[in-house]
Design a protein around this nucleic acid. Structure first.
Lengths: 329, 329
DNA sequence: TTGTACGCGTTATCAT
DNA sequence: ATGATAACGCGTACAA
């Protein structure tokens, strides 16, 4: 790899001058600029980001920490982050935390060791030293932290919407699936749904689920129809669980949506390809990723910005696991 | 952030000695080691990876370039790569190429600028200067390159298997979906299926598809049943397309697998949750990711290794979009 | 066993 | 308008 020195020698100037044209800083004669540009292209020179980063004590790298890219909700987020970052010439060091505090810490540490200029994290423990003592900007994505920049969807409203629409479509033996306790957005959804159901005086059952994994989803689904066989409406904690519930309902010979209605949460890409296609509360995941990246960039470029958070709207996305209804409301 | 100098001062020794204990190199008295270790932990010192990388001209970073993390096949690969890399203390700079040569080039360039020690790439153009002129190890993942280290599944055998099993289950009006022309593994599968079908003297139709995107998959599916309404067996180019075909078949009131059998390719996580669940040719994606990472690490640590490639086995994964059959063969 | 000093490739300051 | 040079934080000869 050619260095700035090689370029300088090749062009017959000093490294300082080369540096000036590279960074468009200070004055440099048009002719020498030309010479230098020629030298650069002849030697295929590209600046060493590492040396740059060492001197300036900041890189063009950001850290992205997600629970598990294998969960279909996260690739959308990641892609949003990536696109926005790429357009602004930032690159991403990526890690999966598995919601494991130790892994989180390790990743955050190596992020810092690599001089990242900012971090986007989806964590259940934003209020720990791991993040609090970080002296670079952090944006929390999907999971919120009070008083810290974050981007998340309105889970409560989502839960409310799900309950509202399900009730409007005539289910009266509703089972609400309560997502993992340690995942705040899951609890928000749950609360939103429960509040609305109570408000409407509709009785309901609850099934607790402790993860969002594909393999376990099937278990909760079985449990649901075993404990509450008369269920005629399921508000699932997310689309993965909803998919498992749909699968199980059909396996049991129940007609969907005639006998059982199902509403998911997230709107992952495959939801629309299921049969029947899944009615769900949509989160704008890709846009959330982009928004988080945009916010982080602001924070990076403008230290003293008011710590703002962005709550994204959710939308009831009607498909075929719910019955049609006349315009209501 | 504390530097090695701070530690040295704090411990009353020189930076060289501190460096020695950090890297476990050379001799250092037990007592001074103790002092230094105390200083390190008191100052919460962690070495600056950037300075290290600059000096050694190599980092602990590798570049991972995938077409699109939003395609459900890739998260598995990525996760495999990540797990193996993390266990070996490497971190990952990640990018999506969208199979776009320009983005690829840009990413590879910044990978180099950041001193990555190796690259894992899933590209359709491995035989370009972008990769050929790279003087760090590269492993091609999923997409092969002749004579260069790569990890990929046996697509041809997969196609053959699909045709074999479909024929054994009595479909005789088979439609084969031919994946995107520029994606080699897609063509391998296709060829494998076609060869077997020809060998068995079974007639078949072909539907060409030019992408693996969710949105377009539905279009090919519609096309399929429009052009070849008498199809009683579909060999899809991957699980996404298969899912769309299943969706469309059911929408048209066809019974699956009684009237139409469907076999996908990949075995993405949701395949088993569809109703009926999808029979498919499984690629061990996660293991492929791990294998690629493992191979890359070997290449990094041992320059002069014989350029080996790893072909992973595919397996017929029988579920409910194909009919049951007595043990055959 | 430990310390001094140089170099990794840049940028920025200060002369010229 | 341009050049010499001191940092940035670390690792390693070489000297002590």
């Amino acid at each position: 790899m050619a260095t700035i020195r090689d370029v300088a020698k090749h062009a017959g100037v000093s490294v300082a001058t080369v540096s000036r044209v590279l960074n468009k800083t200070g004055y440099v004669h048009e002719d020498t600029r030309k010479k230098i540009e020629i030298a650069i292209s002849e030697l295929h020179y590209t600046p060493n980001e590492v040396a740059r980063s060492l001197y300036k004590r900041k890189s063009r790298l950001i850290g992205l920490l997600l629970p598990d890219i294998t969960n279909p909700f996260f690739p959308e987020l990641a892609r949003g982050v990536e696109d926005e970052m790429r357009e602004n010439d930032f690159r991403i060091i990526f890690g999966n935390s598995d919601e494991n505090t130790k892994k989180e810490k390790e990743y955050i540490q190596t992020f810092v060791q690599n001089n990242v200029v900012g971090v986007i994290a989806s964590t259940n423990h934003p209020d720990t030293d791991t993040y609090r003592k970080l002296n670079i900007p952090v944006v929390f994505l999907d999971r919120t932290a009070d008083n810290r920049p974050s981007v998340y969807a309105d889970g409560r409203e989502g839960g409310r919407l799900a309950a509202l629409e399900m009730a409007a479509r005539g289910s009266c033996q509703i089972t609400v699936m309560q997502g993992p306790e340690h995942i705040r957005p899951a609890q928000d959804r749950y609360q939103g749904a429960v509040d609305e159901l109570r408000k409407q005086g509709i009785s309901f059952n609850v099934i607790k689920t402790s993860s969002f994994s594909f393999t376990e989803a099937g278990i909760w689904a079985k449990e649901l129809f075993e404990y509450h066989p008369d269920t005629d409406g399921v508000i699932a904690s997310n689309d993965i669980v909803a998919t498992a519930v749909l699968h199980e309902a059909l396996r049991l010979g129940k007609r969907v949506p005639e006998e059982v209605q199902i509403i998911g949460f997230d709107d992952i890409p495959l939801s629309s390809l299921l049969t029947p296609s899944l009615t769900t509360i949509r989160q704008p995941s890709y846009d959330m990723g982009r928004a988080a990246a945009g916010l982080l960039i602001q924070l990076i470029e403008n230290e003293n910005i008011t710590h703002k958070s962005i709550q994204m709207p959710v939308t009831f996305t009607e498909r075929d696991t719910t019955r049609k209804v006349e315009k209501h409301g």
